[in-house]
């Protein structure tokens, strides 16, 4: 999950996992009442209290979204203005190969970054041992990348990946590993960026999973120990199943963040990189159309495709969740 670097702040979020819960506690309580009638007793207060937040949402988020939809159906330039003409832009994008390639790259990236979740799980489990010394020390170190600026760390990583004098090649050379121009080689660039993606998100994933672990009742683990289960088996048969809600959440956050990945790629690859054609993500493509080629309408189409894909992938995740996530 790349932390957002734009004004909108939040990189990601999820719809509430417990959808069937509806209005949560409030409605549940209401249903229980004997004298029924008013299903909406708070209409007026809701309107008053929601006025400012909703106005802000409309002005800064919903209106831009509407504009984007209109723009995607328009033709024109920034100077001449735009007029709605129909679905030509959509056709141009969907017929062209670029968007599909970018989509594949984005999904590949998201899949690789998802590998960070099991890594974080192992680390979280190791850190969970209460008698272990220096737990907070480790947690601090693992967490530092989360609080740093993506732009700044991307610059550092680009330098480390340098094919001519980068630190990585030097280390690999010393141990007899392969060396190459990691972010300029079409075969490795996307993976190299994804490693940074994992690195940046590891702290967040670790913390969320650790919080989930705290919630696992110790008595269960102890019971398993008495049954003679070793630490590894205990981890898989007791801890992991109880941790599935946290794992699910971390996965959803990670995927949404990955689907919106832009800044790492932008800084680490640069504009004249031979690997760029094979590594562009969908948001990068949006940037290129909207801001480099100045084709805002086409950019709008790509942005909306990103939205649709994000919604679809998240929906699939929620659907699959029933198969493997157990809520206590």
């Amino acid at each position: 999950m790349a932390t957002g670097t734009t004004g909108t702040g939040a990189p990601a979020g999820v719809t509430p996992a417990r959808r069937s819960g509806g209005a949560g506690g409030a409605i549940g309580a209401g249903r229980g009442r004997r004298d029924r009638p008013n299903r909406y007793p708070d209409n007026r207060w809701a309107a008053i209290l929601l006025a400012v937040p909703f106005a802000g949402l409309v002005i800064f988020y919903l209106w831009p979204l509407v504009r984007t939809v209109l723009l995607s159906l328009s033709e024109g330039t920034a100077f001449t203005g735009y007029s709605v003409t129909g679905f030509d832009n959509w056709q141009r994008v969907l017929d062209g190969g670029e968007v599909w390639g970018a989509l594949v790259n984005t999904l590949v990236y998201a899949a690789i970054v998802l590998l960070g979740v099991p890594i974080a799980m192992v680390l979280a489990a190791l850190l969970h041992q209460r008698e272990l010394r220096g737990r907070s020390f480790y947690r601090t170190l693992y967490f530092v990348p989360v609080v740093t600026m993506p732009v700044a760390v991307a610059m550092v990583w680009r330098y480390i990946y340098n094919g001519d004098f980068g630190l990585l090649n030097e280390v690999l050379d010393a141990v007899g590993g392969p060396t190459r121009a990691w972010v300029a080689d079409p075969d490795t660039a996307l993976y190299a960026v994804a490693v940074v993606g994992i690195w940046m998100a590891l702290g967040t994933n670790l913390i969320i999973l650790a919080a989930g672990l705290e919630a696992v009742p110790e008595s269960l683990e102890e019971a398993a120990t008495l049954d003679g289960a070793g630490p590894v088996r205990r981890f898989f048969s007791v801890t992991v199943p109880l941790l599935t809600p946290s794992i699910f959440l971390v996965s959803v956050l990670s995927v949404i963040g990955s689907l919106q990945m832009f800044d790492l790629l932008f800084i680490m690859l640069g504009r004249t990189n031979p690997a760029l054609a094979d590594s562009k993500t969908i948001v990068y493509l949006f940037y290129e159309e909207a801001f480099v080629r100045n084709d805002r309408p086409l950019g709008a189409v790509i942005a909306l495709i990103t939205l649709v894909v994000t919604l679809a992938v998240t929906a699939v995740q929620f659907r699959l969740q029933r198969r493997w996530v157990t809520y206590a």
Partner: peptide, 20 residues
């Protein structure tokens, strides 16, 4: 000349200035 990959990693002017 270094390859295009190399220039993507380190722009030509920087390579020139480092004596490469």
């Amino acid at each position: 000349s270094p390859t295009l990959e190399s220039f993507a990693d380190t722009e030509s002017v920087a390579q020139f200035m480092s004596g490469r």
